[in-house]
Amino acid sequence: MVQFSEENLAKVKEIIARYPEGKQKSALLPLLHLAQDNFGGWLSAETMDYVASLLQIEPIEVYEVATFYSMYNTKPVGRYVFEVCQTGPCMLNGSDNIIEYISKTLSIQPGETTADGLFTLKTAECLGACGYAPMMQLGKHYREHLTKEKVDAIIAECRSAAAANN
């Protein structure tokens, strides 16, 4: 069953308190981030229903928001999600080559996850790192000035982190 820890429930309470009385729905985006971080990197129907119950809103109000914003995954993703920016300035600096290289190296197309469940490759639209292109988002942080060598190093880093945590 989907259930936040006591610590996260306290966090939920603190988030809801940021908004006017009776406007707890405003906490929806932060709560979906918290839920995605805590329940496997994606939002299942069960997770979304749980968030709806916490905010005392209808499940449909959660679904329509979760499907609108690109950062919420409504399907399972790999443990490491490579979100490579492909918009204008990144494209001018070779993002297409980086996407192609990752695709070839991991044998997956954008939108796909490797068979071992370790990596998902996604293309992203402008992430606000145009001066440090090409780049990708990996979890909470950006990896910038990407080269093939850097991509190799990032993949190796993820593999060893995964091995260490298993």
């Binding site: 985006l29 932060p30 809103i57 109000e61 928001v65 914003y69 402008c126």
Partner: peptide, 27 residues
Amino acid sequence: IYVQRGAGAYICGEETALIESLEGKRG
């Protein structure tokens, strides 16, 4: 002062979409 994160939507830079999003809705 409170900080709220969006969730990936350029349109939320438009001020009324931003307000909708702040209220927990689609932008």
